[in-house]
Nucleic acid binder design. Structure first.
Length: 120
DNA sequence: ACGTTGACCTATA
DNA sequence: GTATAGGCCAACG
């Protein structure tokens, strides 16, 4: 099993998504990150859309991926609408000690978790 | 196979 | 602050 078993090697193992999951899973409690930071860390600074797309699949297939810890640049819970319950995202964040006001994270700069500085 | 959409980011007006 | 444009890659019709 080596040559043409699965054809492309980047089918389901070394996908762009896998990298995203790895980073997101490394996010500690009480911390959040942005799509852009992840996209940048994965190697594509402008592929932030794919990060969101990965999250969409994350709660459908893979293990526990704290997608609720991933927000946009403004610290707004953009993807809360895609959760099982729109308010679930805020609930989880508040449960971890993150204050959320009007779908926006309070002191976003403080809870921001940068993979470049923390991870590595 | 092609075109559109998607949980975004940055820049310009 | 809102609106428009470009970009990236993957999934869906």
């Amino acid at each position: 099993m080596t040559k043409k078993s699965k054809k492309s090697r980047k089918s389901r193992n070394d996908s762009f998504f896998e990298r995203v999951y790895e980073v997101v899973k490394c996010i500690p409690e009480g911390r959040v990150t942005t799509y852009g930071a992840i996209a940048r860390f994965t190697g594509s600074p402008q592929s932030s859309r794919m990060v969101g797309w990965a999250m969409n699949a994350s709660h459908h297939c893979p293990g526990q991926v704290p997608a609720h810890r991933v927000v946009n640049r403004q610290g707004i819970l953009t993807g809360k609408n895609h959760f099982r319950h729109p308010d679930l995202m805020q609930e989880l964040l508040e449960s971890e000690g993150i204050q959320v006001d009007n779908d926006r994270i309070v002191n976003f700069n403080r809870v921001f978790w940068d993979p470049y500085k923390e991870l590595i």
